[in-house]
Simulated assay, not measured.
Amino acid sequence: MTKKHIRINMEDSEGARYDIKLDGNVTREKVLKIFEMMDLMNIEEEQEPTNMDSVGSKISNIVDKFFPMGKFTSTNILEKYEDEYNEPVKLSIISTYLSRFATKGRVNRTRNGREWTYQTIKIPQKQQ
């Protein structure tokens, strides 16, 4: 098993900076605890403006819009992509982006027979 390295740099609304470094056996639960800590400290993630010109942002939009919960495959994304944007895209391109999303912790990726299934990772929100 390879060692993972994650570094998170944050700045709150008052200008204080936070550097968090995770090395070794980094699990989903540990990352979720970091996000919970950020929530307790009222540190919000910067929202990058979405550029719908790139294939990756379009695939991300499809995942968010049509599959916020439940499992999906790259073929499901391909069908929705072509319906939504009325343009062709190769299945291999979609698979590559979904693999990248899994590496970045945006979706869970599991092998199911001959294909991969994906599921969006939702960070639990505090009840107000």
Results as ranks from 00 to 15, higher is better:
Arg7Ala: 09
Asn86Val: 02
Ile94Lys: 02
Trp116Gln: 02
Gln47Met: 03
Tyr97Trp: 07
Pro88Trp: 14
Val31Asn: 09
Lys104Ala: 05
Asn108Arg: 06
Ser60Tyr: 08
Lys71Phe: 09
Asp19Phe: 06
Ile34Tyr: 12
Phe101Pro: 06
Ser74Gly: 12
Ile77Leu: 04
Arg111Met: 11
Tyr81Pro: 11
Asn108Met: 05
Ile77Pro: 02
Met37Ala: 08
Met37Cys: 01
Met38Gly: 07
Asp83Thr: 11
Glu44Asp: 07
Thr73Ser: 11
Leu22Pro: 06
Thr110Cys: 05
Asn9Ile: 14
Ser99Ala: 09
Glu29Gly: 14
Ser54Thr: 12
Lys90Cys: 08
Thr117Phe: 00
Gly24Ala: 08
Ile121Glu: 09
Ile94Gly: 00
His5Ser: 15
Arg7Asp: 09
Thr73Pro: 09
Asp83Gln: 14
Asp39Gln: 09
Val26Asn: 13
Gly24Val: 05
Arg7Trp: 07
Trp116Asn: 07
Met1Thr: 14
Arg106Gly: 00
Asn42Trp: 01
Ile121Gln: 10
Pro124His: 08
Asn51Arg: 09
Glu48Ser: 04
Gln125Trp: 00
Ile94Phe: 05
Ile94Val: 08
Lys126Gly: 02
Thr110Ile: 11
Thr73Asp: 11
Asn76Ala: 09
Leu91Tyr: 11
Tyr85Pro: 03
Asn86Phe: 04
Glu44Cys: 07
Glu87Tyr: 12
Met52Gly: 12
Lys65Trp: 01
Ile62Leu: 03
Thr27Ile: 04
Pro68Glu: 11
Met52His: 14
Leu98Gln: 01
Asn108Lys: 05
Ile94Ser: 01
Ile93Leu: 07
Gln128Ser: 06
Arg106Leu: 00
Val89Phe: 07
Asp53Lys: 12
Ile34Gly: 03
Thr73Gln: 12
Arg17Ala: 07
Ser99Gln: 10
Phe67Asp: 01
Pro68Thr: 06
Gly15Lys: 08
Ser54Lys: 05
Thr50Leu: 08
Tyr81Trp: 02
Lys4Gln: 15
Pro49Tyr: 07
Val89Gly: 13
Lys80Asn: 13
Ser60Glu: 11
Glu14Tyr: 04
Gln47Tyr: 01
Tyr81Gly: 09
Glu11Thr: 12
Asn112Thr: 01
Glu44Val: 12
Ile6Arg: 15
Pro68Cys: 09
Thr75Lys: 15
Phe101Ile: 03
Ile123Met: 02
Lys30Gln: 11
Ile6Thr: 15
Thr117Lys: 04
Thr75Pro: 05
Leu40Val: 01
Ala102Arg: 07
Thr73Ala: 05
Leu91Ser: 14
Leu32Met: 14
Arg17Lys: 08
Ser57His: 10
Ile62Val: 08
Gly24Met: 12
Leu91Asp: 11
Leu40Asn: 03
Arg7Pro: 06
Leu91Thr: 10
Gly56Cys: 03
Lys65Val: 01
Val89Lys: 12
Met10Ala: 15
Ala102Asp: 06
Leu91Ile: 14
Asp23Pro: 10
Glu87Gln: 14
Lys3Val: 15
Thr117Gly: 00
Tyr18Gly: 10
Lys90Met: 11
Thr2Trp: 15
Asn112Gln: 02
Ile93Asn: 04
Lys4Ile: 15
Gly113Arg: 03
Met38Cys: 05
Arg17Phe: 02
Asn76Lys: 10
Val63Arg: 01
Leu22Glu: 09
Glu84Lys: 12
Ile94Leu: 04
Lys126His: 04
Thr120Trp: 00
Gln127Cys: 08
Asp53Arg: 11
Lys58Trp: 00
